[in-house]
Design a protein around this nucleic acid. Structure first.
Length: 360
DNA sequence: TCTGGGGTCCTAGGACCC
DNA sequence: TCTGGGGTCCTAGGACCC
């Protein structure tokens, strides 16, 4: 064989990342049900960030309300979220991956794509696992694919601590009979809309006429879902530094806000905080958006483009305050958020953007 | 059973202009 | 009295991800 080397996409995903970082600094917690979320108080309104595998055996998972988790595992260890600690561990992991010689595209605290040309992607995957373990004492799983979609989905079949390869060759064999919601980028809503057209499985999505999907989801998402069903997706791993389009601050109140005064005060505070995040980057704010969650769970967005881009805190706070007047004062408010956008939503050439969701 | 906080991107539809 | 077609910009809202 002259050279079987070809480009591969690896998706590296840390196992129970946040819980694992906590266990590293508190070894006595190893093997116990550990649940990290909110301020670590399971009586508060907050959700699970990560549960250790021991806790997952009781049915606890990310996104679950802490109160529910506590009911399932009353003697679990509940810990508060410590973002700086996870960022530090994450930085170490990413630096280790970069040393492997490929292109690293960071997706979040605990995952990254690794693009490399090799004739033995499994060997590279094992090297990545060993290097990360040695540098950080953290375990990870690796998905190998001929594009990002397949690599990302493959990782799930490798967990924990494993490696799985998913390519055009075994795509339908592995994914064909699975429900569409198993696809990266298809959630409960889209899977229900697909089911409305009789599309329940990946096989059925792959066979569906593209015009049908475009009619249902629009020109971009329709085409995207059609390709997703066949496992088709972008294969270019891009290590360009990530630049945030905007920053937001939001808070869920332990007691619902009930008076206009409380609401305005909260909005001003959140706006000032969101402004600080943008100011730190020295970029102007183009647009301000308010997010309101009325009890029990109805979300509204109220936004406005600024007359002129601004770098002044007072402008951002004033715009948010003005928008706050449109919040219904007769309803109970359980969450408020303010987002300051530094790039217009339609900024950039749409043709250059791939609708892969989930970038941190 | 009760739902975080940080993001990204897409679409529908109204306003406005020629 | 009845009533174009096309384009752009903007807001609201939806959906998804970690």
């Amino acid at each position: 064989m002259g050279n079987g080397a070809r480009p591969w996409v690896l998706h590296v995903d840390l196992d129970e990342f946040i819980a694992a970082v906590e266990v590293l600094r508190r070894p006595e917690l190893a093997g116990l049900p550990v649940i990290v979320g909110g301020r670590g108080d399971p009586t508060e309104r907050a959700v699970v960030s990560t549960a250790s595998y021991a806790a997952r055996e009781f049915g606890v998972g990310s996104g679950m309300p802490l109160k529910v988790a506590a009911r399932k595992v009353p003697d679990a260890v509940f810990l508060p979220v410590d973002a700086p600690a996870y960022e530090e561990a994450s930085d170490q992991v990413m630096a280790t991956l970069r040393d492997l010689g490929g292109v690293v595209e960071v997706l979040g605290w605990d995952e990254a794509f690794l693009g490399a040309t090799t004739d033995d992607p499994e060997a590279l995957a094992r090297r990545a696992q060993a290097a990360v373990l040695e540098a950080t004492a953290l375990h990870c799983s690796v998905g190998i694919g001929d594009n990002k979609v397949r690599a990302k989905i493959a990782t799930g079949f490798g967990k924990p601590r494993g490696i799985f390869r998913l390519t055009a060759e075994n795509w339908f064999e592995v994914m064909g009979e699975r429900p569409t919601v198993a696809l990266w980028g298809v959630g409960s809503r889209v899977s229900k809309r697909l089911a409305g057209h009789g599309i329940e499985t990946v096989n059925q999505l792959a066979a569906a006429p593209q015009e049908l999907l475009v009619g249902e989801f629009g020109p971009r998402m329709g085409v995207w879902y059609s390709e997703l069903g066949r496992g088709i997706g972008p294969a270019v791993v891009d290590d360009a530094p990530w630049i945030a389009r905007g920053h937001s601050r939001e808070t869920t109140y332990q007691q619902n806000l009930t008076t206009p005064e409380e609401v305005v005060e909260a909005v001003r505070e959140l706006a000032a905080q969101a402004f600080e995040d943008t100011a730190r980057e020295g970029r102007p704010v183009f647009r301000v958006t308010l997010k309101v969650r009325y009890a029990p769970f109805e979300t509204k967005a109220i936004g406005r483009k600024l007359a002129a881009p601004t770098r002044a805190r007072d402008d951002v706070v004033a715009a948010a305050t003005e928008l706050a007047a449109r919040i219904d004062p007769d309803r109970e408010i359980r969450l408020l958020g303010v987002r300051a956008e530094m790039v217009m939503p339609d900024g950039g050439d749409p043709a250059e953007r791939t609708p892969v969701r989930g970038r941190l």
